[in-house]
Design a protein around this nucleic acid. Structure first.
Lengths: 304, 304
DNA sequence: AAACTGTTTTTTCACGATAAAAGACATTAA
DNA sequence: TTAATGTCTTTTATCGTGAAAAAACAGTTT
């Protein structure tokens, strides 16, 4: 299956699914260009979607007249796994291998083997590795193989060192933003979400991960520095897999973190640089601790 | 020319040229594996080199007996331009376009067009752009084109902001290194080179660029942080092209910089953190100024 | 037995080709 | 005359392929 296939139509399938949800909500469909903007795809893809919706009897379609004929059913949707980007598929496979033990630092990475194992072309794997290399976990030997540097204690320390430097600076920049900046409204909204989550922490603690990312990205953006903003991708990636992998005391950890975020938000709103610095430091310290304790000892003994 | 070619043998040609120089110096050749390590290539390539040297009458070769028959002549060497990596070729072409005006921020980059213009495959261009994207000058639109963000004043400011943060920290770490660390010897050697250059600045001012990079990399390495060390690639790239492009008052600028470096080295050797901080700040400030003045006004008006 | 040379296998690098998706142009409806 | 639809062209994403280069294996020489 999937062999010899030049390119999967996951963009279409994903947009189709999202379009179904839209249909379910609004009971109508706008013009083709508008729908394209809404779904973030070209009109070419929009027309493929509409064509299929007509075929499956969801809508009647004649030029600009689009009539909804019936509600979308669960089986109208494409399976979730068919909507993933190749890059996502490769990343998942790669990270699974990397975290599922046996991935010792210094080990060499074989493009061809990876490609065969995942069932994709070598080009895609190469491109993935190049993109991934900026995370500092792998390194290329000139016209030869890639080397795994390992998810070690050293890595975590280096990562958090930069993170702390960047976030302290961003937080200070944030606090210095004028009162009429739209970020204060964003912050208020995030504060509400944090309070809500704090109340329902017992059942919704796993919603924290996503909130965490949005909160920190908002702060980093205040730096107005592309290198700082981009660096959050590294942190986000590591934390994304960290959250999936280290489930020990997740509820407690997240509860503490929500509290720290609220104090941090309070400090930002006070616009008192001393308070901001203290709150930021405190939160980052416990975030680092959490990350460090999740690194198995066997992995932390290796040389960088 | 070069059309339909699967892969150029630039590794072989470059190693061949270097091997000729070696032959010229040492008048003899070691064993195949040793030669491989020396040239940084595999034995397969070494054997191709030896085979050609035999063919062109440079050596007699029978198993481990390699006898030098004559001196290498200029026409034995492969032309310089045939020894470049594809990545280097693409980078040069791309940067020429980028710096040779007409490259307005917001402009879109077309992989196919670039590939055709340079005369290479699209894959190589794609891979180059992915690698290049970490420099913060271009950005990808999801399943669409790349966008040029432009070599603007904002870019220079963001770059130098991070550079200053990283280098101040690295310099402090450097000064705190134990007396028996090998870096102090490296620093002494660099100091000597700086003094030498200071004396001959009138004629050798263009040798500064390379010395500058080695000096700053030494300092950054003291951070023991891969993200800081890797970030120097961004700086090095920008300065590399900056030096090629902005020749105004090059001699004066470099003379000042050499002086600042010497003061900076002095401060490091004093191991007085206050002095280190001051000397580092001073140098970085003038480096930033140099970079900023080299950005044409027309480019600095654009929004980031 | 250690280090070399000879030979074979595997991997990386780069290309052209092709389907998916985007984008441009021409036409038509409001 | 603006904004949509219908059609055609270009570009991106991905693969298989083949040469260059690396790496592994086997046999020799010292």
């Amino acid at each position: 299956m999937g062999q010899g296939m030049s390119k999967s139509n996951n963009v279409y399938k994903d947009a189709y699914n999202r379009c179904l949800r839209l249909l379910d909500e609004t009971r109508s469909l706008p013009s083709e260009p508008e729908l394209g903007t809404l779904l973030g795809v070209s009109r070419t893809t929009v027309r493929s979607i509409l064509a299929r919706m007509e075929e499956t009897g969801l809508i009647a379609w004649n030029k600009r007249a689009k009539t909804v004929l019936r509600d979308p059913r669960p089986d109208d949707f494409f399976p979730e796994e068919e909507t993933d980007t190749l890059a996502e598929i490769i990343e998942r496979s790669f990270m699974r291998r990397l975290l599922a033990g046996g991935a010792e630092a210094g080990m060499q990475i074989n493009e061809l083997e990876l490609a065969r194992e995942i069932g994709v072309g070598t080009t895609s794997v190469r491109e993935f590795l190049i993109r991934f290399s900026r995370f500092g976990l792998i390194e290329k030997r000139r016209n030869s193989h890639w080397v795994l540097k390992g998810f070690t204690r050293a890595f975590a320390l280096e990562l958090t060192e930069i993170r702390e430097m960047f976030e302290l600076r961003s937080a200070a920049a944030f606090a210095a933003l004028p009162q009429d900046s739209p970020v204060w409204a964003d912050l208020d909204r995030l504060e509400d979400e944090h309070r809500l989550l704090a109340q329902e922490i017992a059942t919704r603690f796993n919603a924290f991960s996503e909130l965490d990312e949005r909160f920190h990205r908002l702060i980093h953006r205040a730096s107005h520095n592309r290198f700082i903003v981009d660096f959050y991708d590294v942190i986000a990636m590591i934390f994304h897999y960290h959250y999936q992998w280290n489930k020990a005391q997740e509820r407690e950890r997240n509860e503490v973190a929500v509290g720290e975020h609220l104090a941090y938000i309070e400090a930002l709103k006070s616009r008192d640089l001393g308070k901001v610095d203290a709150a930021c430091r405190k939160h980052l310290k416990s975030a680092r601790q959490t990350l460090l304790t999740s690194i198995p000892e066997s992995r932390s003994l290796q040389k960088s």
